[in-house]
Design a protein around this nucleic acid. Structure first.
Ligand SMILES: [Zn+2]
Ligand SMILES: [Zn+2]
Ligand SMILES: [Zn+2]
Ligand SMILES: [Zn+2]
Lengths: 141, 141
DNA sequence: ACCTTACTGCGACAATGTCGCATTGTCAAG
DNA sequence: CTTGACAATGCGACATTGTCGCAGTAAGGT
């Protein structure tokens, strides 16, 4: 089990949450994924591992992880929300519209500075933002 | 009817498309909206105006407008896709998480420059991007 | 071992689309 | 103006993505 997964479990326990098989499996699935996963993808992984979990449980778990700040929700162009563990640094994604590959994109200092400028100009208090790139990856272009 | 709506209709006609009541009504609804609309919101407007249109028709129309480059799709945090006419300058949105108000955010030159830098660094060919702010508007903060 | 209550499974339901097919309506060629 | 091609529509069935209430289960502190 990855360190990120371990840290996530600790964080959960200290929040009055319990440590169940389904929870552990969801966190591990996210920890081992190389791209944000949808609820149905998580469910598929659990099933493949013999951890029978209900659809509703997976949804509830992902929501709980998001609320606890352990996972973050990202939305690409498809309908389903996707989730990834929040362990690492703030970053964004580049999604290939042909092969669906997702790669992380480091947060650019200028980018975040632009966001703050925009916020100041508009009197808007930014709580979070999304910034995702859609196009062709190096292999597909 | 707004100029943008008129231009959109022209653009459609020159693409072999036909000019129907439903199409005109959908375009007008988008042209008069102050924020991107979901399919069900568009449908609601059509109904209120006495233009009976089927759900499927509205979805198909919005998809066609997007494909033709007449409308752009934006996704906020809710599940439904939203659409706005593409007439104006490239811009982004600030969405209030409390009152749901949406305001346009001018594209910041630095922001778009950061995007190009990111693309260059990663070998990724960017076709389009999303950048949306979520937080509290001036009234709600 | 027991109690509390977080968590789960089940099933019903809601929201958002998508699709095939028969019918209708546009529009331009004749 | 009529008419034919085919774009567009309505209808209905179905798929995906969630959400919710409730009764039963089980985690973990005592
Ligand atoms: Zn690719
Ligand atoms: Zn960022
Ligand atoms: Zn507000
Ligand atoms: Zn932009």
């Amino acid at each position: 089990m990855k360190k990120t997964a371990h840290a996530a479990l600790e964080k959960l326990k200290s929040g009055g949450r319990r440590l169940t098989a389904a929870r552990r499996a969801v966190i591990e699935a996210l920890a081992e994924a190389e791209a944000p996963l949808s609820a149905s993808e998580v469910l598929g992984i659990l099933v493949k591992r013999g951890v029978g979990a209900d659809r509703a449980t997976v949804y509830r778990e992902l929501e709980a992880l998001s609320e606890a700040g352990i996972a973050v929700t990202v939305r690409f162009e498809s309908r389903a929300a996707r989730f990834e563990l929040a362990g690492g640094a703030h970053h964004h994604h580049a999604v290939c519209v042909k092969c669906e590959a997702v790669s992380d994109v480091e947060a650019d200092a200028e980018l975040e500075a632009a966001e703050r400028r925009i916020a100041r100009r508009s009197g808007f208090k930014v709580l979070r933002h999304s910034f995702e790139l859609f196009g062709l990856c190096a292999d597909c272009r």
